[in-house]
Nucleic acid binder design. Structure first.
Lengths: 171, 171
DNA sequence: TAAAATAATTGAACGCCGATCAATTATGCG
DNA sequence: CGCATAATTGATCGGCGTTCAATTATTTTA
C-alpha cells in the first residue's frame, strides 16, 4: 500500500510478495475490504505512535507540533495515509469496533491538547472544538496533498491552518 | 458515477448504458483517466451552478449560504462529489488547464463573498483566507460524509464549520 | 449515381483483478 | 505409524482497462 497506493494496491500482489497464494490471503482476511481495513488499522496505529512521540519531544506550542505531526505523517506515508480516506466500506456497514477505537484514541490525544490550550471558561467545549479542528486540519492536509492548494497558489498550508486553530482556541 | 460511485464505476458499463461499445469510449476519451476527468469536470460545472444559484437567492448571510451550498451539493451528489477527490492523476501529471480553470472559477466566487465579509482593513487577506476557509469547509464536509464525525459524536457539522468561518472573518 | 477515400465503430484478445472452493499438503496427536 | 485436523493451494469464474485489426458508415470525388 505504502508503495503503490490505494488505486494500484492488490491482494494478489500482497500474496506474491509474502510468498503465499491468493487463497491464503482470503482465508486469513476473509475479503478484500477486510484486508484494506487491517492495513488502514495498522496505519492508524503508526499515526498514533507518531503523534505521541512528536508530543513527547515537544516543549511548548504542543498544538502547533500536533498539527506539524499531522502534515508530516501524511507526507511521509502519502499512500498509506490517503488509503484511510480512499477506502469506503459498503454504505450499510460500520467499521469494526477495534477500528473505531483506534480513531477515537487519536481523537482523545488531540482533545487533551486542545483542552489544555483552552482557557478554563471554555474547557467544556474541548470535545466539540477538537472534532471541528481535526476536520479543519484534515481539510488543509487534503488540499496540500492532492494539489488543490498548489492550484490555488497556497504555499504554506501548515501555517494557514495554524492561524485557523489559534483563532479558534484563543480566549 | 452518480449511481454507483467511484469504486464501482466502469467505462464498460458507461458504454453499455449509452449503447456504444467499449472501443468507442476509448476513441472519444482516450483513456479511463480522461473519462473520469471529463465526468469530474462536469461535476465541477454543476457544483458551480449550484453555488451561484444558491447565492442569487440569498438575502444576507451569504457566507452562511455558501457553506450550506457546499454541504447540500455534496449530500445531493455524494458519489459524483466524492469522485472529484477519490480520483488522482498519476503523480507526474497535472489536470488539464480547463479543469484547473473550473476549480479556480469556484474559488473566485467564494473569494468575492469572503472579501465582502471582511472589514476594509483585511480585504488584502481575502484570497489566502479563502483558500484556508475552503479547506476548512471541505474537511468538515469530508468528515460528515465519510462517517468520521458520526464516529466522534458530531451531529451538526455545518454549524461547527460556520463557527470556524465566523471566527476567521470576524473583524 | 458509383466508386473511392475517410471517418466512426466494433468486439475479440490480453493481462490483470477480486472471489471461490475442491483438492492437496502439512501438522499435531494417540 | 495412522489418522484427524488444519493450512495452503491455484485453476476457475466473471469483470475490468486497454489495444487494434477488421468492419461498417459517411463523405467526397469523378
Amino acid at each position: 500500500m505504502e508503495e503503490v497506493g490505494f488505486a494500484h494496491f492488490s491482494a494478489r500482489e500482497v500474496a506474491k510478495r509474502i510468498g503465499y497464494s491468493i487463497g491464503t490471503i482470503y482465508n486469513v482476511f476473509g475479503s478484500y475490504d477486510a484486508l484494506i481495513l487491517a492495513i488502514n488499522g495498522r496505519t492508524l496505529a503508526l499515526w498514533r505512535d507518531y503523534l505521541e512521540r512528536r508530543l513527547e519531544q515537544s516543549q511548548g506550542d504542543r498544538l502547533g507540533h500536533a498539527i506539524e505531526a499531522y502534515f508530516e505523517f501524511a507526507a511521509k506515508h502519502r499512500h498509506a495515509w490517503a488509503a484511510i480516506y480512499d477506502f469506503r466500506l459498503p454504505e450499510d456497514l460500520s467499521p469494526p469496533e477495534t477500528y473505531q477505537a483506534q480513531v477515537r484514541a487519536i481523537f482523545d490525544i488531540v482533545v487533551a491538547e486542545v483542552r489544555a490550550a483552552l482557557p478554563a471558561s471554555r474547557k467544556g467545549e474541548a470535545e466539540a472544538l477538537t472534532r471541528s479542528l481535526l476536520a479543519t486540519v484534515h481539510g488543509h492536509c487534503v488540499f496540500a496533498m492532492n494539489g488543490t492548494f498548489a492550484m490555488l497558489g497556497e504555499r504554506e498550508p501548515a501555517r494557514a491552518v495554524l492561524d485557523r486553530v489559534r483563532e479558534a482556541v484563543a480566549p
